[in-house]
Every structure is written in C-alpha cells, then in structure tokens.
Amino acid sequence: MNPYTLPDHELERLLGEDVPAGDATTLALGIGERPGRLDFRARYEMVVCGSEEARRLGELRGLTATGAMVASGTPLAAGATILSLEGPAAGLHTVWKTAQTLMEYLSGIATSTAAIVAAAQRGDPDCAVVCTRKNFPGTKAAAVKAVLAGGASPHRLSLSETLLIFAEHRAFLDATPAASIARLRRRWPERAIVVEVGDLAEAQTWAQAGADIVQLEKWPVEAVADIIRQLPGTRIAAAGGINASNAEAYARAGCRILVSSAPYFAGPRDVAVTLSAL
C-alpha cells in the first residue's frame, strides 16, 4: 500500500544535500561510467517504506529499476530484497546513501506504527491509531507517508485544518464552553471539535457543551474506562504515552481513538546494501 510518493523537487533537495558538487571520490577515480548494480535488502523484519522514493532517486540519476520493487506498507522478512537499481557507477554512488537512509528511517516509523496498530486491534478491531504532528520539523510529508504505510492515520496534519482546544487556549477564553463550541461551529462548520481535558469535571463540562471528541492526555487505563462509561455517546481519544506495550489495554477499555507520537521516535530499520560492478 503506497499512500503517495514525494515529489521530484523534494527528492532533488535530498540529493543536493549529500552531493552538492558531485561525488569527488568517484570522479577522481574515473569509474563513473562503469556499469553496476545496487541491491537494497531488509536486514531485519520490517514494514518497508520509502521504496518508491528510492526508485525515483535512481531514475533521476539515470538508473533503472530491475525486477520487482516492494511497495511501501509491505511487511518483509529479514533478507528480502526491496529494490534493485542498475546503471553507471556515478549514479549508483550518488543515490546509494540517500536512498538507503531514507528507507531506513521511514521503515522504522512504519514498523513501529504497525506494531501499535496490531496491538490496538487485538484489543478492539474497531480501534484506530492516529499519529500526532510531532515529527521532526521539515519531514512531515515523509513521516506521514510512513504512518499511513504502517496502518495508522494522521491526528493533525497541521494547525490549519484541525480544531483542538487545549488548556493553553482556554487560558485566553472569557466565553463559556458552550459559547466557545458554538463559535467554532459557526466559523468552521465542517470540522470536528476536539477538546483536551485534565480531569473528569472538565470532560463532563466540554462533552455537555457539545465537543465531538474529548481527548485525555496521559490518563491511566482505568480512568479512561471509567470516563467512557460516564460519557456514553461521546468519542474519547486517549493520548500521551500510547505505544505497542499498552495500546491493547486502552482498546480493551473501550477507547476507539489512540493518539500516539511514539512511531516518530522509533529506531531506523536497517537496510543492507550491495553495490557491485557488472
């Protein structure tokens, strides 16, 4: 499942970071025109992500993909081939590290995401995992692709397209909760309104005011289960500290929305590379 592919201008930017003025070593050795092959393989089990970008990086430098490419979102066993590229050594050396590293980091996010999704669905098949906007700045498009490849969805793509009232917003409000909700509905009638709360009283107040989703930040499982019982009909999102070790418990407690930043901090999944002359 490939959600989308990063555009060429972004891939050119990545190549430009690593090779701003040509590959000095390959040029000085005079081997740039010799034909070769670059094979990428999963060193360990993983959910692959970024293979489409790796292939396109090669194409942008005159390389050709040979054989089948494994699409983003595909679970792979250790040792499985992801992608093979053939062409001049100059292109192979230019693309090698950028393509490898991009797949490693994105596959790390996708693999971590898939583990959280699997845990949540063991608790409740209808439980959804959504990932925050806490990706490393400048990497959003790539990070969101990895989240989608892992089976989750974005919690908030940006401040521009979501309505989420934090305590930090409420510190500036003079209006009542009901008036604040009504204002948001007038101004952004197509958007769901989410309110993050700190305790049961706040949850009840904002649910009664008409919030579509009440978000609970770092609440223990037992407290989440209790509030779900007390607020029937209100969608509850559990956030803060959600990971593969506790997602099943939150899902079993009745929470249908689990908000997580954990995948962005996952370690890369190693991609083994073989570069050989033909």
Rank of each mutant, 00 (worst) to 15 (best):
D212P: 08
A192H: 15
I213Y: 05
A152C: 11
T176S: 12
V214Y: 06
G150E: 09
V221H: 03
I242S: 00
A182M: 09
A146Q: 00
S160C: 08
T139E: 03
F172G: 10
A207C: 06
A225N: 00
A178S: 12
A238H: 08
G241T: 07
A201Q: 14
D124E: 06
P232T: 02
R235F: 02
V147H: 01
A171H: 14
G241W: 04
P232C: 02
N243G: 11
N135R: 11
F166G: 07
I165R: 08
A182K: 04
G150C: 08
G198T: 12
A237I: 10
A249C: 03
A167Q: 14
G198R: 11
P232Q: 04
P177C: 11
P137K: 08
C131Q: 02
L231A: 03
L184Y: 13
P232R: 00
G240Q: 06
L231V: 04
R122E: 06
D212C: 12
L173G: 15
G151C: 05
S153C: 13
I213E: 05
P125Y: 04
A209I: 12
A244C: 04
W206H: 09
R170E: 11
N135M: 11
R133N: 03
Y250C: 10
R186A: 14
P232Y: 02
A175I: 14
A128Y: 09
K218C: 13
R185M: 01
D226L: 13
R122P: 00
A225V: 02
H169Q: 08
I228G: 02
R235Q: 13
I165G: 05
C131M: 03
R187Q: 15
G241V: 12
A171R: 15
W188A: 12
